Amino acid sequence: MHVYALVGSSGTGKSHRAVRLAYELHCSIIIDDGLIIEENRILTGTSAKKAPSRLGAIRTALFQDDLHQQQCQEAIRQANPSGILILGTSDGMVNRIAERLGLPAPEKIIQIEDIASDAEIRKARYNRSQRGRHVVPAPALEVKKTWRGALIDPIRILFRKKGHERKTWTEQSVVRPTFTSLGNLSISTPAIIAAVTHQLQGMAGVHGIDDVEVDHLDEGMSLDVKIHAEYGIALHHLGHSIQQALRQVFDESIGVPVAAVNVTFTKLHLSDR
């Protein structure tokens, strides 16, 4: 078994480049932030990005929980890969991960600066620090199975196989972690209701807002909105517009994942004209 490592400080784009590097090194398994990823599926593990604190994230990434460690060791044993790529923020970290999982020390450690330009690293840092965008080197469907609320967007990466003209694609997922270096973010229910009211007031077809109820689910926030609508408006189009507007303002702008937006029309108002 060949073990390699990709090292770089947080936010420099390691996870984004992991799939391509693993392909070039003939590694079928990537170990990243507490996850064991085999090609297009997450075999097992717990993402450090789900941890509620920085300390918890570090413990998860280093497989310090015994049950987590054992599950990941067993998954690697059953997969029996010829090559593994470990991601970490330092040489010491990737060596500790290898030791914790019973793997040989990495025979080669690649620095992120070796495979990414200064401009690419600056862009990755910006996406991490300013936009809270983190990459998991696994398809969106895999991420949704265990952590749907964090998913922002899937991204596709182009490959050209060596010695062939045929192009292939692979998918990764952009997520918003539970814990970031900026601290924890919480928005109160009254603030959410105020944001909903502000967003919908003045929208064409909306005469008024009857009620807003907020429910916090594991996969994200659920909104139940009761609306007074203008008579003559196509209600199915208006309902869809309301759903899209609220999902966009919360999921994309404010950063709160939205699991559902339920719209009920409680009253129709005739036009004054």
Rank of each mutant, 00 (worst) to 15 (best):
S9H: 12
S9F: 11
L25Q: 03
I30M: 14
I31W: 10
I37D: 02
N40K: 02
L43A: 11
T44H: 03
G56M: 06
R59C: 04
T60E: 06
F63N: 05
D65V: 04
H68E: 04
Q70W: 02
Q71W: 03
E74W: 04
N80D: 15
N80S: 13
P81Y: 13
S82P: 08
G83L: 06
I84W: 00
L87C: 04
L87K: 11
G88W: 05
D91Q: 15
M93H: 09
V94N: 00
I97R: 07
L103F: 01
K108H: 05
I109R: 06
I110K: 05
I110T: 04
A116I: 03
S117H: 01
S117Q: 09
D118H: 13
K123P: 00
R128H: 06
R131P: 02
R133P: 00
V135S: 01
V136K: 04
W147R: 00
R148E: 14
A150G: 13
D153F: 12
I155M: 10
F159S: 09
F159G: 13
H164V: 01
E165P: 04
K167W: 04
T170N: 04
Q172G: 08
Q172A: 08
R176T: 10
T178R: 15
I187Y: 10
S188R: 06
S188V: 07
I192G: 13
I193F: 04
V212I: 07
V214H: 00
D215S: 06
D215N: 10
D218Q: 09
D218A: 14
G220L: 10
L223V: 15
Y231D: 13
G232N: 04
I233N: 09
L235G: 06
L238G: 11
L238M: 11
A245Q: 12
L246S: 11
Q248E: 14
D251K: 08
P257S: 14
P257Q: 14
A259D: 08
A259P: 01
V261C: 01
V261A: 00
N262W: 11
V263Y: 01
V263W: 01
L270C: 00
S271D: 13
R273H: 11
